[in-house]
Structures are given as structure tokens and as C-alpha cells.
């Protein structure tokens, strides 16, 4: 009962923040609302007893990605003072795409019989997650690592060429 109430409150806050991201005309505020929305998702993970995901969500999305977006907006001129228009020439095409995606998601959520486990979550979640990363999912894990290392080396190379 209490959990349900918290879930509804957190969901409303998350969705409200997400809505404000697209509805505010101030780019900087949009970025901050995006961070708030990410934080709400972290709260949802906590409700699901997925502490590791929650902490990583805050660390990566709020701490790194949102900070990066805010930084990029702070460095770019204009737009922030005047406020950006909410619509541009392609709004009709985007609306069709969004409607399609929304329809697919609604159908998926309502039509698929999602299995629900009644068991309590196991205690050693992090250890299991770590073993899964280097066990059955080692190839996707390594591919992601290789991608990140490539990005890192690429960034250093670009920075060096400027010197």
C-alpha cells in the first residue's frame, strides 16, 4: 500500500520532469529537468530493490551525462537567453513517429503476458551480476568495453592533433 503510493508519486515526478524537458523553452532548464527525470528513474530502481542499478543510474546519467549536457549548453551561445521554439518544421513527421512508437509500446505492455516472479530477490545480487558479466554475457560486455576504450583513445587523439 505504502510502496504503491511511493511508486505513484515517484512515477508522476519522473514523468512530469520528462514532460517539462520538452515543454520548457529554456535549454538549461530542460537539461536540469532531464537530470531530475534520471534521478526519478533511479528512485524506481530502488523501489525494485535493484540498488546497484539505482546507484549506477545516478552515477552515469545524473553525474556524467546530464553534467555533460549542461556543460555543452553552457558553452554554446544564444538559445538560452532567447528561449528555443517548441516546434520546428518537422513536427508533423516526428508526431507520426512518436504516435507509432507509443502505439507499439502500449500494445506490447498490454498484450504480452509478462511473467511475474513472487520470489524475494536474492541477497548476493552484485556478485551474480558480476559473474553474469564475465560468464554468459562476456562477449557483449567485452564489445562494450572495446567501444569505450576506442572512444577514449579517439578523444585523446583529437585532443593531441590540436596542439
Amino acid at each position: 500500500m505504502l510502496l504503491q503510493a511511493i511508486f505513484i508519486l515517484v512515477s508522476l515526478a519522473t514523468l512530469g520532469a520528462a514532460l517539462l524537458v520538452v515543454l520548457t523553452r529554456n535549454l538549461f532548464h530542460s537539461a536540469l529537468f532531464l537530470a531530475a527525470s534520471f534521478f526519478g528513474v533511479a528512485a524506481l530502481y530502488v523501489l525494485l530493490e535493484a540498488e546497484f542499478l539505482a546507484v549506477v543510474q545516478v552515477l552515469i546519467y545524473v553525474g556524467a551525462i546530464a553534467t555533460l549536457i549542461v556543460f555543452a549548453i553552457m558553452l554554446s551561445r544564444g538559445g538560452v537567453q532567447r528561449g528555443v521554439p517548441l516546434f520546428n518544421a518537422e513536427w508533423a513527421i516526428v508526431a507520426v513517429g512518436v504516435a507509432l512508437l507509443g502505439g507499439v509500446l502500449i500494445v506490447l505492455l498490454t498484450q504480452v503476458a509478462w511473467p511475474v516472479s513472487q520470489a524475494a530477490p536474492p541477497a548476493d545480487l552484485i556478485a551474480r551480476l558480476g559473474q553474469a558479466f564475465v560468464g554468459p554475457y562476456v562477449i557483449p560486455f567485452e564489445v562494450a568495453s572495446a567501444l569505450l576504450v576506442t572512444a577514449l583513445i579517439g578523444a585523446i587523439l583529437i585532443a593531441r592533433e590540436r596542439e
Binding site: 537530470a35 540498488e51 546497484f52 552515477l59 545524473v62 553525474g63 545480487l125
Partner: peptide, 22 residues
């Protein structure tokens, strides 16, 4: 006593830089 305590410290610490940016 979170089972992700050390990571939690890092995550919360990164919120501080957001505050300073704001």
C-alpha cells in the same frame, strides 16, 4: 549498510558537481 556502499558514495559525490554547475 548498502551492499553498494562504496559506489553510492561516488554517485552522491557526483551530484555535488551538478549543484556547483547550477
Amino acid at each position: 549498510d548498502l551492499n553498494v556502499g562504496v559506489l553510492y558514495i561516488v554517485a552522491m559525490g557526483s551530484l555535488g558537481s551538478m549543484a556547483v554547475l547550477m
